[in-house]
Design a protein around this nucleic acid. Structure first.
Lengths: 204, 204
DNA sequence: CACTGTGATGACGTTCGGTGTCATCACCAT
DNA sequence: ATGGTGATGACACCGAACGTCATCACAGTG
């Protein structure tokens, strides 16, 4: 590889710098391709880096680990969710404020449908990746919980509500992965309605 | 426990067989000791097996991985939860049936308080272990969901309710870890009440 | 135009988690 | 005694992940 320490490159992939540009992007694409082709477990980092034209060490300079590739960008989305909840009218209930945040996330995923569903199928097929997904959702719940507490919701209640609403989101998200005709935001609403109905019966 | 097919045991550690008895138990104890002493990440499997007096290979014959040590026995508890839900009166609501299952788990953990809290502190201190804990809870939610479906609850609603109730349990469980004076079953009830109140406001 | 700093990468070595495989040997049943 | 079984030791191996240093295009400076 390395296209020969090349200062003079006349051939097609004439690159400006010392290295081909967008290393991170090339790694991400190569990784996802290989995960889809051979499965996550049977894909090794050397395979990925070979396809991307870099060394193994470089992979770990861009991603914390093999799984990380599939979870880039979620942090920003989480921030948007937090901001949305913080910006919701103070009069709104905890569930309504949280729901507004989840709507942002649902809309974002809906708009990048194809890519999101690709990742989902990969993740659901691989226990190791499901683990990581659960962590991500836990982080989201944590963020929402904080946002609710900032709105004055009592601590434990905020945690419970945040976790429960994320749970609803997850159920909707999974269903969405298998039913391409449905739209995520509405599925989330339906899940929340289910919970409303079910929890009305708590305590008899 | 095998208690040594013991014909003649005069001195305490006089072993009958070729190997010392209770390998699994010795490994588990050694591992937890070391995790507590040096932290999970800084403990290596060779360290564990050295203390337990076996080879590294043997460790992986008893546990799937380093984390597995802290999650043995949860499968049985999960089964008990499932059976409890299945055995609940058909007239009970989904939440009430599920709550009866969670109560079994809460009571079990409450009764082995000290050990449970030891594990909890280890798990909460280690991201890698939190991951695994999330998987366990996800499995519990899956089991409860199935049990509810078997009771006739509609599929998606069952999933949502199961996940939400496990979420409530988790919140209570965490709080319980920090408030030794409170009892887990009651904390779970309180969390469920929080959800009832909050979700009553869904949909305005 | 030479000089220098910077940042991304290559190259190399190492630790450790985890698996496959085969030989060994107490125990048990016949 | 004889052969089967099951748990373990011993050994080799792969791959993930990290530490470290050298390298070299590029930008900026004078």
């Amino acid at each position: 590889m390395r296209s020969g320490g090349g200062r003079d490159e006349r051939s097609e992939d004439l690159q400006v710098g010392r290295w081909k540009p967008d290393t991170s992007g090339r790694l991400e694409r190569a990784a996802i391709e290989l995960y889809l082709e051979n499965g996550f477990a049977r894909t090794t980092v050397p395979q990925i880096t070979e396809r991307a034209g870099v060394t193994t060490r470089t992979f770990f300079r861009h991603f914390a680990d093999k799984r990380d590739v599939l979870f880039v960008g979620h942090d920003e989305l989480r921030e948007r969710v937090a901001k949305t909840i913080a910006a919701a009218p103070p009069a709104w209930s905890a569930t309504k404020a949280a729901a507004s945040g989840l709507n942002i996330a649902a809309a974002a995923l809906q708009s990048s449908q194809d890519e999101a569903r690709d990742r989902r199928s990969l993740i659901t097929a691989t226990p190791e990746l499901r683990e990581r997904e659960l962590i991500m959702f836990a982080a989201v719940a944590g963020t929402i919980s904080e946002a609710l507490i900032a709105r004055g919701v009592e601590d434990r209640a905020a945690r419970a509500v945040a976790e429960a609403m994320v749970a609803a989101f997850r159920v909707a998200f999974e269903y969405w992965g298998e039913h391409t005709e449905r739209e995520l935001p509405q599925l989330v609403d339906e899940a929340l309605d289910s919970l409303k109905e079910a929890f009305a019966a708590v305590g008899d």
